[in-house]
Design a protein around this nucleic acid. Structure first.
Lengths: 371, 371
DNA sequence: CTGAAAGCGCTTACAG
DNA sequence: CTGAAAGCGCTTACAG
């Protein structure tokens, strides 16, 4: 048995120095049958091919002995189909985005697909597109901070389905999966209003108007909710921050200065200090809490703070943060499901948006408005 | 031009319904030359093959027009080499592990490799091993919570290099990349002692003794540092927590109860409250701060708290956490570099450990011992 | 019941 | 200067 094993490995080894994988040829020559027979047996076509039971078991036994594994790459070349999905992402360090990737990874694995993450910067975008094409990926998930038209053009040309995640700008190609921020925003404002808050400040993003425009959207939703309730948002009650939070060791450092300044501006507002601050993301909310503490303000006793995303820091901090829980993992799962359907069935490239529900998680950073 | 484009696509398309990729055959028939010539030109072997300059430019032009992309899978099949690295991980939701993946991803992309993340649970381990083999990955990075011997056996048999990350149990196969926790631990204890602390409690992990054993190690290092300085650690000054922190929505929820209890036990220690608490990970430290606040203790005024890892919450919380900054990204980079060397040169499977330096980051959760 | 043959896309000696 | 041929590992009609 051990000798056969050795022998099989030698036959199959391209490079005698390395052990190498056994191939169908290894098994076939080892047994004196053809590769076709081996292929039929190993792929469960013994029945329709009426392979002799004895041959079947001989093939299966040797395959097991040699630790045969089919070469997925060769299969892909042959079939022209790929069960590999690419995930192009600009900010893999940002917790919400890797949560999305995790969701996608999980769903892909359930479906028998594998996921390939490719990080993108303006300088490497063309190179990444090239890699996607060369790897003959079966589908692409995209969350990128820049113009995607070159990618769309090429994917469209060769027929690769594309799904974007968390990109709110309508595009002429592919499916968009997004969070239903409107729901979370409405719940958050309702929550604060029910607690008696009327003067509510908003800390928005100071980043340029990216194609993404997630920022204006959340800010806009907030203003809309306030207007619906007849609540005034005076000039200066929306401020902006630009700190970089992409990972523990982002190049620009953990600069909380703009977040602190944005909060200070709200706290010193001439029309009077707001009793609550709603923030476009959790990081801003947590820094806002730091700013309040520095002034001796208690959260939520003196002022309530609400965030957006529900990052892990939101429940590890003190007080734990009330926040809109965006459905990041589910967004990733949904994106994969779309692509799996596209790969396995017909690809429908008609542009459409899929919204995943979100909701408010009430913790201890929000409380009754002080009287 | 446009017509040629159309024509080329039709020739190259396996399925006429889908556009599909152009192949070397598409180009060759389009030009009336052989595939070999196309291959030579496209791979920069025009010189040694002395391809006529005119032919060269015709090939290059048509390749550009048709948007030709070489099929990386077919290349891999042909060469038997793969520039794809697999990353097997049990807890991709855990921020430190995710950071390690990011570092690996970044380094792999710099080296012209791609990374494939595969998440592993006890129930899917065998399936994941199978996928790694079928995809003919060129190397494997491993961070798994269970016995890895079946993986090692198979990788060894077919000659795939394996590097483990953050696995401190010596193994008979492959390279281990680890953080030099000893450095961080020494700096942390020195820092506290210099601030006048003598009674220091430790919150350790209550998880079973996994093969990983990162926990006993950190606890052991702490005890050793204390002993070196002649400082006593009475019974009960090391407590344990088991909260699950793998992601925002881990199935078991964000249960901070064991962390709070571990802290309470220290604060009520019969030999007197410690003036500082050192924790085996940041999450425990942040929950410890919550527990202190609940008792009206000020951090760091009444008690200092130091963590381990430097997760993002460590600098978003208030007070920002003093912590040992483990070099997660660098560990990922190092692992990839080992594998790249293995793929490109000779594979040296001799077991060895590579330690990446770590250090203390002093923030505001530690201060002078109260008198 | 099984095998010879053609082919997926690519590469590499080897002729001429 | 270029092409015919063999081959990587796999699959699929098609003979017999």
């Amino acid at each position: 048995m051990a000798e056969e094993h050795e022998k099989g490995q030698e036959i199959g080894a391209a490079n005698p120095a390395r052990p190498g994988h056994a191939t169908m040829n290894t098994i076939a020559t080892h047994l004196g049958v053809s590769r076709a027979t081996v292929s039929h047996v190993l792929n469960g076509r013994s029945a329709e091919q009426r392979i002799r039971p004895e041959t079947q078991s001989r093939v299966l036994d040797v395959a097991r002995e040699l630790g045969y594994r089919p070469n997925a790459l060769a299969r892909s070349v042959r079939s022209g189909k790929s069960r590999m999905i690419g995930y192009l992402v600009s900010d893999p360090r940002y917790e919400p985005y890797w949560n999305t990737i995790i969701g996608a990874l999980d769903e892909a694995e359930q479906e028998g697909f594998t996921l390939k993450v490719l990080s993108v910067t303006p300088g490497t975008f063309a190179e990444r597109i090239r890699q996607c094409m060369e790897l003959r990926l079966g589908g692409l998930i995209v969350r990128i901070n820049q113009d995607k038209s070159t990618l769309f053009a090429e994917a469209n040309r060769v027929g690769i389905p594309v799904v974007t995640v968390d990109e709110s700008v309508p595009q002429s190609f592919g499916v968009r999966v997004n969070a239903a921020d409107a729901l979370g925003c409405r719940e958050a404002v309702s929550h604060l209003v029910e607690l008696g808050h009327r003067r509510i400040g908003f800390i928005s993003s100071g980043f340029g108007r990216q194609p993404l425009e997630i920022v204006p959207t959340r800010e806009g939703l907030f203003l809309q909710e306030m207007a619906t309730r007849g609540l005034d948002v005076p000039d200066g009650c929306v401020t902006r921050e630009t700190m970089l939070v992409y990972g523990r060791r982002a190049k620009a450092g953990h600069d909380t200065a703009t977040g602190l300044a944005a909060t200070d501006a709200l706290l010193e507002h001439p029309a009077g200090r707001p009793t609550a601050i709603f923030c476009w993301r959790d990081e801003a909310a947590l820094v806002a809490i730091q700013a309040c503490h520095r002034r001796g303000l208690r959260v939520p006793g003196d002022i309530s703070v609400v965030g957006f995303s529900d990052i892990s820091a939101a429940w590890l901090c003190d007080p734990p943060l009330t926040t809109c829980q965006s459905p990041w993992e589910e967004m990733g799962r949904t994106a994969v499901r779309q692509l799996v359907n596209a790969v396995e069935g017909e690809f429908d490239p008609s542009p459409r948006e899929i919204l995943i529900p979100s909701g408010l998680v009430v913790r201890q950073s929000s409380g009754p408005a002080p009287t």
